[in-house]
Design a protein around this nucleic acid. Sequence first.
RNA 1: CGGGGAGUCGUAUAGUGGUAGUACGCAUGCUUUGGGAGCAUGUAGUCCGAGUUCGAUUCUCGGCUCCCCGACCA
Length: 407
Amino acid sequence: MLQSQLFTKTRRNAPKDEEALNAQLLARGGFVQKLMAGVYSFLPLGLRVLRKIETIVREEMVGIGGEELSLPVLHPKANWSTTGRWETYDTLFRFTSHYSKNDYVLGPTHEEVIAPLAQQFIFSYQDLPRYVFQIQTKFRDEKRAKSGLLRGREFLMKDLYSFHRDDADLDAYYEKVQAAYARVFARVGLGDDTVLTFASGGSFSKYSHEFQTLIPSGEDTMYLCEKCRVAVNKEIIKEQPTCPSCGGAKLEEKTGAEVGNIFKLKTKYSAPFGLQYKDEKGAMHDVLMGCYGIGISRLMGVVVERFHDEKGILWPASIAPFSVHLLELNGASATGLYSALQKRGVDVLYDETERSAGEKLTDADLLGVPLRAVVSPKTKGKIELKRRDSEKAELVSEEELLKLLNH
RNA sequence: CGGGGAGUCGUAUAGUGGUAGUACGCAUGCUUUGGGAGCAUGUAGUCCGAGUUCGAUUCUCGGCUCCCCGACCA
């Protein structure tokens, strides 16, 4: 990609209505633009990051048997009345059609859609288990949207739903999802900072689990057992004052951002919709369900909160908008190298603009591409290579660079 | 939802009851060239509505929007 052709430009100042660090850096870099509180456009650079996170999540969901589908965002009131959540769901976006006078919901989650849908296809124990997921825009009428991408009114989420014949099967799959989630967070670069957290489980199971990324700007408070790297959410610390893993009582207070959660719904949503199956003897039973979410757009914000310095973002390589940021400075030309990199399939952003060296270098730091390659009169036919997370640069030849990137 | 703060060119800001200023950006030209370069010329703005006033961007009221704290967050 030629930087001169980018739809967006970087900004020297963050908009004054953005205070959250993730929003400031993402807005300055041209990754996102706020339309209103809690609602963001994802611009070409930001969408690249979002898509990479999606791909990682998708691969891991497919890896545990998930089949991808796409459910509607617009729901009829009736489904939400069936579960009672038309009245009880606080942050539900409800509205009435101006001409038909029908009531609708903008989906904040999809149990009300998936349960009756599954009822069309699941009849027998032979149809179980089943696992379906989607990556879909969700709407929640948050009383207070805040913290940039961390709490939006419109956001991108992966939601997986599983269907089982008994508790043992649900429990076993729940464990698999938990392991897959750990892989997702490791792959997006948050493995060391994301901990399994015990949280309230509602009325059907004792606890649910959240994945909390430990960042100072996180909204949730939890108590972490340093030894086990397992935490207890503040909401259940009274009933669970010790580490659920080792029983230790030395828990340290931390703040985190919830990037994922896994939840045993059991029959909470299958029962109201009559989602049942016949066992081998022809007896009817409610299907057991699990639901499992990952906030994709929130994850993008959390990564920025976790990986930045005073100059800008430091994207983990796995989700960076580009692999290499190629800069030509002070009249030098990197056109040949750009073509060579493209030919090798390297995802490269090429700053061929005729701006000052300082401006281009500052831009590179802000955008946070993991590897910076500079060609200038000073590099004398070689390439100055610098990792975004390192102060040291090294001079390499074109062959050395290509070899390195092939790796 | 309760409390607090704030709306001025595209962005960040200053200022004023009487012609709205600066920086960045953008445009043109020249000069520069390793950490958001210099000079010149140009471009572009007072959230919406009502009130007070000869006159409101400024004061008053209402609305809308944004930010922060709290509450809330299957």
